[in-house]
Amino acid sequence: MTTATTRHPLVGLAVFVAAVAVTAVVGSLSAVSASERYQALAQPPWAPPSWLFGPVWTVLYVLIAVSGWLVWKAEGTTTRLLPYAVQLLLNALWTPLFFAAERYTLALVDIIALAIAIIWTITAFRRHRPSALLLVPYLAWVLFATALNAAIVTLN
């Protein structure tokens, strides 16, 4: 474990921003025609328009990066960051599964695991209340996206 005196906070922030950016880039590279594919799917009446996803995810990714960074800043490299890494991996997998592979049921399994991993992360971050609270909007959006994914599986 590194100590607070050997870690530079801005370098740490850059690492967390980079990790989240990689997650976002993996998704965006596999979703080149996501808007068209999304609109072509049978959707429930409560499905949001495709243009909404980009702005929502941008805000969520900032919250995710800051959340992890705050825990790291307080504790250094810690096992509390394991669920954080797991949720980033599951997040990165969802878009390629859903849009690139068109494996909607497998994407549903992934997003359910993602919701569980986010809950695990929030629980692991509970000693750092601001970090845990920053992940609540992410969990809410992922739960909504899980319902949307399930509806798309059912309708298609």
Rank of each mutant, 00 (worst) to 15 (best):
M1E: 14
M1N: 14
T2C: 15
T2R: 15
T6F: 15
R7V: 08
V11A: 11
V11E: 08
G12N: 10
L13W: 05
V17C: 09
V20I: 14
T23K: 00
A24T: 13
V26K: 05
G27I: 06
S28N: 14
V32N: 00
E36V: 12
R37N: 06
Y38C: 08
Q39A: 14
A40N: 10
A40C: 04
L41Y: 01
W51L: 10
W51H: 13
W51E: 15
L52I: 12
F53L: 10
F53E: 09
P55W: 06
V56A: 15
V62Q: 13
I64C: 09
G68D: 04
G68W: 04
L70S: 09
V71T: 02
A74K: 03
A74E: 10
A74V: 00
A74S: 07
G76Q: 05
T78Q: 03
L81D: 06
L81F: 01
Y84G: 07
Y84L: 03
Y84H: 08
L89C: 08
A92L: 06
W94Y: 08
W94K: 00
F98D: 03
F98G: 05
A101E: 00
Y104F: 14
L106R: 04
A107I: 08
L108A: 12
V109M: 03
D110M: 08
A113Y: 02
A115L: 05
I119P: 03
I119L: 14
I119A: 10
T121L: 06
I122E: 06
R127I: 04
R127H: 14
H128V: 03
R129M: 12
P130D: 03
L134D: 02
V136Y: 09
P137N: 12
L139Y: 06
L143W: 01
A145M: 01
T146V: 13
A147N: 13
A147T: 12
I152P: 02
V153W: 14
T154K: 13
N156L: 11
